[in-house]
């Protein structure tokens, strides 16, 4: 890549930073340059987020339909999977999966809910009275 070809496409980096890249100057030598971003990568990031948003929407539907507990929704919202959530809370993976069950969820103690609330950065109230 030539230094003049370093992409300068606006994206999520805007207003935050530019990134270093190495490219060839006019004499064919490597030099450092700064890039504002590259549309190809921005699009890859966008498509990853589209997928995340779809999962979150789907999770919300399932919670509203009474098929899943709010814990499942917040897990998706915070981009976690069962393994990451289990690691953060200190529960076993199978325990976390049991807590996805809305009936079991209703019986959880405040102490257990507090752990989830801390990880999700919400209040216990928000977990209990999910809207």
């Amino acid at each position: 890549m030539k230094k003049s070809e370093i992409p300068q496409d606006e994206g999520p980096l805007k207003g935050w930073t530019r990134e270093v890249c190495y490219a060839k100057n006019e004499d064919g030598k490597y030099e450092r340059g700064l890039s504002a971003g590259w549309s190809v990568k921005n699009d890859a990031l966008d498509s990853a987020w589209e997928e995340v948003n779809k999962s979150v929407e789907e999770a919300l539907k399932q919670v509203r339909a009474g098929k899943m507990s709010p814990i499942f929704y917040f897990m998706e919202l915070k981009l976690m999977d069962v393994a990451v959530l289990a690691h953060y809370t200190g529960f076993w993976k199978w325990t976390v999966k049991r807590h996805f069950n809305p009936f079991r969820f209703k019986k959880l103690s405040d102490k257990v809910l507090q752990k989830y609330a801390d990880v999700f950065e919400v209040s216990v109230e928000q977990l209990k009275n999910f809207k």
Binding site: M1, L13, E19, C21, S35, G37, W38
Partner: peptide
């Protein structure tokens, strides 16, 4: 991870 232009 964040770097620019593929193959960086």
């Amino acid at each position: 991870e964040i770097g620019t232009g593929g193959g960086g």
